[in-house]
Amino acid sequence: MRAISGLWRWRHNPLRRGTDLVEAWVALVALLLVLVGAPVIGCLVGSVAQDALQRSVREQLHARHPVTATVVRGLSRLDPDPEISPARDLRSRVLAQWTAPDGTRRHGPVTTGLGSPHPGDHFTLWTDAHGDAVTRPLDSATATTHAVLAGCGAAALAAGLVEGIRRLIVWRLVRRRYARWDQAWDRAGPDWGRTGTGS
């Protein structure tokens, strides 16, 4: 709003310098780019990220299969990191056996969400087509959240870039204005204000 009022105020002012008008126009263009351009960029980036992530979700769901695994024996308990996971998120390493999607029997050490596993306990394990244990596939809601965050980040980055360019232009204009003032002072000379006093 300051940009618009600045343009209107300087429109017919006889004290207006060229740099004042340029500064007001730069502020107005930057405001429009931040209010319109940054959200458009954010939407475009978010849309592209959403498409890519949802495609990845479909590919992972197609390539990964849930199977039921059985605990043979516990190996170790993994304490959760208190900074990134809640205390109730207990994980354990166990020796388990499961049947791969191709029908072969598999066994090996895996991580499970069972807090205190006992031999014979069952849990869901994600495997690839060969029966090797893999991480759980990305779900659609998490993919959407990542896409929204990417769009918001792109919009914020675009707005910051516009503001940085605006500040750089204004800084250059102020330097030019000061240089012109210095030139005007040099033309006035060291006796400015004392002309004709005989000094």
Rank of each mutant, 00 (worst) to 15 (best):
R2P: 14
A3E: 14
A3D: 14
S5F: 14
L7R: 12
W8M: 14
R9A: 15
W10E: 12
P14K: 07
L15H: 13
L15R: 13
R16S: 14
R17P: 00
D20K: 08
L21G: 11
L21I: 10
A24W: 08
A24D: 07
W25L: 13
L28H: 07
A30L: 04
L31C: 10
L32D: 04
L32K: 08
L32H: 08
L32A: 14
G37C: 06
P39I: 03
S47R: 13
V48P: 00
A49I: 05
D51S: 15
A52L: 10
R55S: 15
R55P: 03
S56P: 01
V57T: 14
R58I: 10
Q60K: 07
H62F: 07
H62S: 10
A63S: 12
P66G: 04
V67L: 04
V67Y: 01
A69Q: 09
A69Y: 04
A69E: 08
T70F: 06
S76K: 13
P80D: 04
D81A: 06
D81Y: 03
D81H: 08
E83G: 05
E83W: 12
E83H: 14
S85E: 14
A87N: 05
R88L: 04
D89I: 06
R91W: 03
S92W: 08
R93A: 04
V94Y: 00
V94Q: 00
A96M: 03
A96G: 02
D102S: 10
R106F: 01
H107M: 09
G108C: 05
P109V: 13
T111A: 08
T111E: 08
T112W: 01
T112I: 09
G113R: 13
G113E: 01
L114I: 15
L114Y: 06
S116R: 07
P117Y: 00
P117T: 04
P117W: 00
P117K: 00
F123N: 03
T124A: 02
L125A: 08
W126Q: 09
A129W: 06
A129F: 03
H130G: 09
H130L: 05
D132L: 05
D132K: 10
T135H: 11
T135M: 02
R136M: 08
P137D: 12
D139L: 07
T144A: 11
T145P: 00
T145C: 00
T145M: 06
V148E: 01
V148Y: 01
V148I: 15
L149R: 10
L149F: 15
G151T: 04
C152G: 14
G153W: 02
A156P: 02
L157Q: 02
L157E: 02
A158K: 03
G160K: 01
V162C: 00
V162I: 13
E163F: 02
E163L: 11
R166D: 08
L168Q: 05
L168H: 10
L168Y: 03
L168V: 12
I169T: 13
V170Q: 12
W171G: 15
W171Q: 14
R172A: 14
R172T: 13
R176N: 09
R176M: 06
R177H: 10
Q183E: 11
A184N: 12
W185L: 15
D186E: 15
D186S: 11
D186W: 12
R187V: 11
R187A: 15
D191Y: 03
G193C: 09
R194M: 06
T195N: 02
G196N: 07
